[in-house]
Write a protein that binds this DNA or RNA. Sequence first.
DNA 1: TCTGCATATGCAATCGATTGCAATAACAGA
DNA 2: TCTGTTATTGCAATCGATTGCATATGCAGA
Lengths: 353, 353
Amino acid sequence: MKQTLRPASGLRATASARPTIKDVAARCGVHPSTVSRALSPAMKHLVATEVADRIQAAANAIGYRLNMAAKGLRTGRSGLIGVLAPDIADPGFPPVLSGIADHLNAEGYATIVVDVGSKGSEQDLVDRLIARGVDGLVLATVSLRDDVVKHCLDAALPVVLVNRVDAAGQLPSAASDDAAGMRLAVEHLVALGHKRIGHVAGPQEISTGARRRAGFEASAKDAGLPARHTPVEIAETYTRAAGREAALRLLARRTRPTAIVAANDLLALGVYDALAARGLACPGDVSVVGHNDMPFVDMVSPPLTTVRIAQRDMGEAAARLLLARIAAPGASREHIVLAPELIIRGSTIAREH
Amino acid sequence: MKQTLRPASGLRATASARPTIKDVAARCGVHPSTVSRALSPAMKHLVATEVADRIQAAANAIGYRLNMAAKGLRTGRSGLIGVLAPDIADPGFPPVLSGIADHLNAEGYATIVVDVGSKGSEQDLVDRLIARGVDGLVLATVSLRDDVVKHCLDAALPVVLVNRVDAAGQLPSAASDDAAGMRLAVEHLVALGHKRIGHVAGPQEISTGARRRAGFEASAKDAGLPARHTPVEIAETYTRAAGREAALRLLARRTRPTAIVAANDLLALGVYDALAARGLACPGDVSVVGHNDMPFVDMVSPPLTTVRIAQRDMGEAAARLLLARIAAPGASREHIVLAPELIIRGSTIAREH
DNA sequence: TCTGCATATGCAATCGATTGCAATAACAGA
DNA sequence: TCTGTTATTGCAATCGATTGCATATGCAGA
């Protein structure tokens, strides 16, 4: 264990060196370029079948593996896709990521996921991804600050948004139909006889926050509920604590709502906290609806009625969009909208009245 | 500043082309190698300060960004780390990942996370990562099949395990002290007066499953509980459904346990399901203890008493170990063990007796 | 036998950055 | 003035794979 274990300086001729295309060529008595062709599906037709088979066999024999860095350098495409996430730990994100990654993997791409919250400026993170030569970017970041989007456009980098849209609608996106989701929630409550429905809105600089709020207001209006009976309080972040605070403000109003629609499940859990703090029962005193159907909200007490969004499909759609963009950079910006679904559980109950 | 401002030979001077080291060199009237040195902290001392500053300025001016693929090709190090995860959607994983990624990012590495469950053989996934030239691998995979580990060792690839250990203890690892965690759980229940404690064990081919079970049995024995009063049922997978089945078997025994320790929180939720199915109350009839303290188990009903493990620290430790391995491939294999902590909530209650 | 064309393979440049070595300049000491 | 250092910078090879072009071979048709 304490031998002179430092052969590191300079080269090493041990067997540990990874075989290259040259090794395969030497073993087959052909030129490296022939090996390259034989091993590339697209160019394989240029080399004699017999030779191609021999090369393939030799490659397998010595365990040859393509060096993506070299290939990428030559071809200018890395096969890498960057994903900017607001917070990996957000339970809503993994399904999206999984959808993205699966689709991209199948096409030979690898994904680099970067958690924005943790470190440095978004700008800088994007630059680092560019340095790595990513072929495209999926943005799921919380706050779509213009400069980041602009930065990507400047770099002529294919970009798509997932679970978000940008204000100008410049970029292709895959997202849930926020307005439709809120409509499901509101109409469900109205059908249950609720007439005073509050909304704990998410951050308004995030598209989901703004759009869900707009959806709530539109649906409430369409249901004939006056604005004074459909109060809105904004949570500054998508966290349980912020949801609690906003809900407390809602409950402190003169005419207390009999139901609360939260902009997402985390906020809804915060609403639970607020109700507990005020000694109110859910759904007995106040019904609650969440949004996203994140894992385990069926286990909380009471099980949360929520709007399920198609997270995995969303990721997959985003991946598809991105690949299309990469193939044809000028392609029209498409906005894929996924239909949400209402999952009724125990947190909503009819209002006898 | 010479006259030969060669108009980019064949290429068009569109803004879309990423500037290279050559462009910077041309702009400064120096050789590309000088630019390389000026821009590399380690080699900067070789170039005159005045020139270095000029180069730096020019690089900023035209927005030069290092091409990692090219650098990696030349230096043989990609700055990429692969992370093999059993399932990104497992709520226990993100904190670990976050710990890994943060630490590695700070050192200039990027991480490629691969979800094993979704696609293809683990073997193949590892090969793809190797093709990408990863400098090291973090394995958090469910089943440590020997061949994968061997495969990595064959490739002379630095590898560390996280939240797992391999049977032979060959590889460095960062994991929670499973035995200590079970001891906390058992002693807590014993202190509450429980005398018949069951265990819903995890898959035995996974280190956490086997070690937690061993820890349970050792602690039970030390507490003076006879084996017939401390039955064990194995769940084949770490899922809620499997936990339910195992718990049902436990409850069907002649002498029903008054408390159940589950090998993880997901299984514990399955235990809740089983209790509900049998019309038993928790904690009234049966107390339940989980393991991992995954997000939101404090929100379920009743809030779950569980063993919290230091997931983020675990990820960070794994990253540290890996970097050490990369720096000194022969380094001794270290096993970092993190202390767990018991979080007492509402699912455990004293046994009056 | 010669021409023509297709097929199969070799050759060499190239992608962008790094680095050992060589070359030059600047300067000190004698 | 000559020699020996040292500080800078240029040169060119290199990493591994790809690809346009040139070459060689084979075969068919005239």
